[in-house]
């Protein structure tokens, strides 16, 4: 399985999860894990998603980026290995 991390960082507001997950479900992407915290109005969410069937992340990156711009949030998607490499021996 090819997994990626979607990170959402910015000011808390209504409907963040709904909008981000809509983008993902429109692309038929399964969400494997979600965690989030809110610290002094600052929203952070990390999702681990299955991108096995997706050859090219470009289109998804662009869509998530647009959603991020609409909500004034920073949304990124990157393959999970980079996190594994940095935090697991």
């Amino acid at each position: 399985m090819r997994r990626a991390v979607v990170s959402v960082v910015g000011k808390d507001q209504v409907g963040i999860i709904a909008k981000v997950t809509t983008v993902l479900s429109d692309s038929h992407i399964n969400i494997l894990d979600i965690s989030q915290t809110i610290l002094q109005d600052f929203f952070t969410m990390m999702m681990i998603v299955d991108v096995t069937g997706i050859e090219n992340l470009d289109r998804l990156q662009e869509q998530l980026g647009n959603t991020g711009d609409d909500l004034s949030l920073k949304i990124n998607i990157q393959l999970e290995e980079i996190f594994q490499a940095m935090h697991r021996v």
């Binding site: 991390v5 990170s7 960082v9 894990d33 965690s35 989030q36 915290t37 952070t44 990390m46 681990i48 920073k74 990124n76 999970e80 980079i82 996190f83 594994q84 940095m86 935090h87 697991r88």
Partner: peptide, 17 residues
């Protein structure tokens, strides 16, 4: 092994900030 939220945040902070 699953990566914890704070670990993901650390990587993203390192890259973005």
């Amino acid at each position: 092994m699953n990566i914890a939220l704070d670990e993901m945040m650390e990587t993203i902070r390192m890259i973005q900030m």
